[in-house]
Amino acid sequence: MRQGLVPKKVFFTSGSGTHKEMLESFEMALRDAGIEKFNLVTVSSILPPKCEIIERSEGLKSLVPGEIVFTVMSRNSSNEPSRRIAAAIGCAKPKDRQADFGYLSEHHSYGETEKCAGMYAEKLAENMYFTWKNERPESTMNISKTAEVDDEGNWTTVISAAVFIL
Results as ranks from 00 to 15, higher is better:
V43K: 12
T18Y: 00
S82T: 14
T157W: 04
Y110K: 08
N39I: 14
F101T: 10
M73Y: 12
E58R: 14
W132I: 03
S144E: 02
S74H: 09
K95C: 01
S139E: 05
Y129R: 06
A87I: 13
L63C: 11
E114R: 07
K61M: 15
E67Y: 14
I89R: 03
A161G: 08
I54C: 00
K9I: 08
I46W: 01
F70K: 15
K50L: 05
E55Q: 11
G15Y: 01
I89T: 09
G17P: 01
E114P: 04
S82D: 14
A29K: 02
S44W: 07
S62Y: 12
A92E: 09
E126C: 04
F164T: 05
N39P: 00
C91P: 06
F164E: 04
I159Q: 04
I53F: 03
S57P: 00
H107M: 12
H107Q: 14
L60S: 02
I54Y: 02
F26M: 13
E67L: 11
K50Q: 13
R56F: 13
K37E: 13
S144L: 03
V149D: 00
F38H: 14
E80V: 15
F164H: 03
E55I: 12
G102T: 05
L104C: 06
S62F: 15
C116H: 13
G66Q: 01
E152N: 05
S25Y: 02
M119P: 00
T156H: 03
T157Q: 02
H108A: 12
R31V: 10
R83D: 14
V41T: 13
S57T: 08
E122A: 04
N142W: 13
N79V: 11
G102Q: 04
D96Q: 08
K145G: 00
K37V: 03
R84G: 09
L63V: 10
P48M: 01
R75Q: 12
C51M: 02
S109L: 09
A29D: 01
D150G: 07
N154V: 04
Y120R: 07
